[in-house]
Amino acid sequence: MSMPVTDTDTSDRRSLHERIAADLRDEIMSGDLAPGARLPSTAQLKARFDASNATIQKALQILKDERLVVGRAGAGVTVREHRQQTVRPAAFMAPADAGQPYRWLSEASKHGNLAHSTLLEVAEVRPPADVCAALGLSDGETAVLRHQVLSIDGEPVEVVKSYYPFALARGTAIADRRKIRGGTPALLAELGFPPRLSVDRVSARVPTQEQYQALNLPSDLPVLRTLRVVYTDDRRPVEATVMVKAGHLYELRYEFAPD
């Protein structure tokens, strides 16, 4: 049971309704309040947090805006059935089987979700510094950018910017503004650059203006930013992708087996 939160608590400078929302958000994300579960009544929350009715309603509105809970007439406020998704990065590395869609789409569909990718841009650009370093690009070297937004059940969930050394991508379907059946892992394998190793660097950040708008975020809650570098034979980097998703809606799952 959480300790009551009061307005005189000087250890947390957030407003009371933000602190209440934070506690409830943690319980939702940890599973203490499971998908479909009904939240405590307003009276129970008022007593627990020593807060007014208006403050409780403001806290609940934050969670509604974050798409973590829904309010139904006669049913109170309940946790959304799909309030958080678990992503297994290792599942996306291997090329898709012949004739099959990009693995991200097929993996999302396994959970009964309608997954969709929207290709926004394909262009020759100078990547961000960390991407240049990951790809080993020298000063002035460019890369081909493939920029897309991934959606589940009509809601944007991830902004994806993939970069490929221009010398590798030039004259291939990577540089064309169209979707690649099976995704770029399958195409890279066809081009003689099969993915052999994938290295992720994950950080939590405040969303940029572009990310905030693209993901339709309700506030400046942290986003998860993953820089994934894909290597082919001889540890040659052939792809660097920056993936950004809402931190309160997604978690990453990594599995490691002892040697």
Score class of each variant (00 low, 15 high):
E239S: 13
E141D: 11
A214R: 07
M243P: 00
G76N: 04
D153L: 03
S203N: 09
A167C: 04
E158K: 07
S109E: 12
A73N: 09
Q44L: 09
K46N: 05
R83K: 12
A257G: 06
G182T: 05
E251V: 03
H116P: 02
G154T: 08
L145R: 04
S52G: 14
L252Q: 14
L188V: 04
A75E: 12
Y212S: 11
A108D: 02
P35I: 04
A189F: 08
I28C: 03
S162V: 04
T8M: 09
G183R: 00
L227Y: 03
I152H: 09
V242F: 08
P156C: 05
R83L: 11
D26F: 07
E18K: 07
V125T: 11
E255S: 12
P258N: 14
L60S: 06
D50T: 09
Q148D: 10
R236S: 09
Y212T: 08
R67G: 03
R88C: 07
T172S: 14
I152W: 14
D234V: 10
A133W: 06
P95E: 08
C132Q: 15
G247W: 00
L227H: 13
R178A: 14
A173G: 08
L114C: 07
A169I: 06
D26Q: 13
D233M: 13
D7K: 12
P35V: 06
A143T: 10
R14D: 13
R25L: 12
H248A: 11
A98E: 15
A204H: 11
R83G: 03
V122L: 12
H17N: 15
H147D: 15
P258L: 14
Q213W: 13
H147V: 02
T6Y: 04
T184C: 06
P194G: 05
K245Y: 03
P207Q: 04
G183A: 01
K46L: 06
A98G: 06
Y163S: 02
D220C: 13
L135W: 02
R146D: 01
E251W: 03
V238Q: 05
L217T: 05
R177L: 06
V5F: 07
F256T: 14
P156F: 04
T241C: 09
V131T: 08
N216W: 09
I56Y: 00
A115W: 01
F193E: 00
T232M: 08
E18H: 05
R236P: 02
R126T: 15
G154Q: 03
